[in-house]
Design a protein around this nucleic acid. Structure first.
Lengths: 155, 155
DNA sequence: TGCTTGCCTGGAGTGCACTCCAGCGTTCTA
DNA sequence: TAGAACGCTGGAGTGCACTCCAGGCAAGCA
């Protein structure tokens, strides 16, 4: 593969921000489900469920069949967490995961999907800023009203 | 009650932004449920449900028992819409509605609630901006990868 | 050796925010 | 005056994103 970066096709998309501590170095990066739960804030239930619905790649297993997560899996979960914050439905994230699994030929599709998501996020931010303006108006109204009531009550 | 302003205790909080068109002037402001549905984008089902759970004040009725919404009700719905955008749970909005109905002595409590909500909104915006940064990184990565793939074919 | 802890599975259950339904009454238009 | 369109109610149903459960295996330790 040629696309530079220290990644592979499966998760060519791991750049979800700061290291978020407690990671083990690559090579000895195996985490149990409860460790990942602690690291991500998700429950073990949710992690298994994500896998079941195809939002996670198939996770490595120990010789006894227990899940062993890698740093790459954590990266993916970090991305999923970010996308979840945008309100993206799980089904759409699954779609994205499928594209990633499908390989290089889905690059442009992924690219489009990311750009759409970006637009959605911008729109959400704008909405929230509108709401903030309303809240600020109300808050200053209540501040004034509070003062009015206070001075009145000093009868 | 003493707080000035051209409002009453029930909805002392109507300042949800621009007039949002199609309003009838105060005094002849009676809308049927389907008009309100069209104006707000909510369904008639949802409007009845909002009333049932206490998120709306009791709506005026025609002599035959049909709902007749007022401009004040539209204002309230506009606020609810804004709060909904922030992800505030309906139960919390109901709580706020109860405070509004309860009268002047809940001013400070409402004030606090609004300030908390404001903080939540700021936090949401910050989260979204973090997500935006991640998306931008990925998008530019995909843009580069796309170029690389175009010039050379990978495995 | 037994006990506790952690993890496994498929499937059922939960909570939220609607959304729809049946069966009926009222209003509007032709 | 008929028929469509609109509205009413209580209660049931839906879709999403988890969340829990029962029953069982495997590893560590006392």
């Amino acid at each position: 593969m040629t696309v530079t970066e220290t990644t592979d096709t499966r998760t060519t998309d791991t750049c979800a921000g700061p290291p978020q501590g407690n990671r083990r170095p690559d090579g000895e990066d195996t985490y149990t489900i409860s460790e990942v739960a602690a690291l991500t804030g998700l429950t073990a239930h949710t992690l298994r469920w994500y896998e079941r619905i195809g939002l996670m790649p198939h996770i490595d297993r120990s010789h006894t069949g227990q899940r062993r997560y890698s740093n790459r899996d954590l990266d993916w979960l970090a991305l999923v967490g970010k996308l979840r914050l945008t309100g993206m439905p799980v089904a759409d994230m699954v779609r994205y995961a499928e594209l990633v699994r499908a390989g290089d030929h889905t690059y442009t599709e992924r690219f489009e999907l990311l750009k759409e998501t970006r637009e959605d996020v911008l729109a959400r931010i704008a909405e929230l800023q509108g709401t903030l303006a309303v809240l600020d108006r109300k808050i200053s109204f209540y501040a004034d009203a509070g003062r009015a009531l206070a001075s009145e009550r000093t009868r």
